[in-house]
Amino acid sequence: MGIVELQNVRKVYPLGKVQVEAVKGVSFCIEKGDFISIAGPSGSGKTTILNMVGLVDQPTEGEVFLDGKPTSGLKDAELTRLRHETLGFIFQSFNLIPVLNVWENIEFPLLLGKTRVGKDEKKEWIDHLIEEVGLSEWRKHKPNELSGGQRQRVAIARALVTRPQIVLADEPTANLDSATGEQILELMKKINRELETTFIFSTHDARIVDIADHIIRLRDGLVTENRRRDEPAAEACAAGAAGVGVRGARAGA
C-alpha cells in the first residue's frame, strides 16, 4: 500500500468563461521512502498535482489518499493540521519568512499546531538539521543575507523539522545554477536515505531525473510514463484505502 495514491484525479480551473483542464484524470501510487521525480514541460500540470498531493488544493474529481486515508471533504482546518503533521514543503523560490533568521525559520513549523517539543530536544534537532544542510555558521542570518543555494538548504531543513513522512518540492532547483541545483538534489537524496523520508520533487529539466527511484512523466495533464528505476512500469498500489481495487497508471503512451 502506497503512502500517496491518486485515483482518477482531475483538476479544472475556471478561467473567465472557459475551463482550463490542468490535470485530466491521473492515477499513480507512491511507495514510502522513495525519491520520486515528477517531470514534464511547463504547463504539464506538475504544480497542480503537487498542490493536490500537498493538500494546498483540492481535486475537481477523483481522490487523493495520504497514508491510505482519503482526503476529500476535509475542512480547511483539518487539511491544515494534516499538512503540518505529515508534509514538508520546499518551494522553487525558497519562500523563507523574511523577518526570521535561519534558526527561527527552521524552528517555525515546530511552533505551530498542538504538539510541543521539549526545549533541549528541539534545540538539538534543529542544530543537527542546520549541520546536516551545512549552515552552522549562518544560523543567526536573515534570508536576504543568504545565497539561493543557502536559502534552499534552510528550506530543506525547515521541511524536515517536523519529521514529516513526505516532503514535496516543486522545482526546487529551478532558481539555482546547475551545480548548486545538483548539490541540493544530492542533499535531498542523502536525507531521503538517512531518514527514509519520501521525497516528491518536480522538474522540467529532463537531465536531472536520473537521481530518482521512481519517475512520473507528464504531458498536457496526463501521465505519459510511470516507472520505477530498472523496471518497465510501476505496479499498482496493493489495495485502495476503501478496499476498492486500484488501477495503477499505465506506462507509456
Binding site: T80, H84, F91, F108
Partner: peptide, 16 residues
C-alpha cells in the same frame, strides 16, 4: 501574499 501561502502550507491556520 507569498508569505501567507507559505505559512498556510506549513500549517498556520486561517485564524493565525
Amino acid at each position: 501574499i507569498g508569505e501567507i501561502g507559505t505559512m498556510r502550507a506549513l500549517g498556520v491556520q486561517r485564524g493565525g
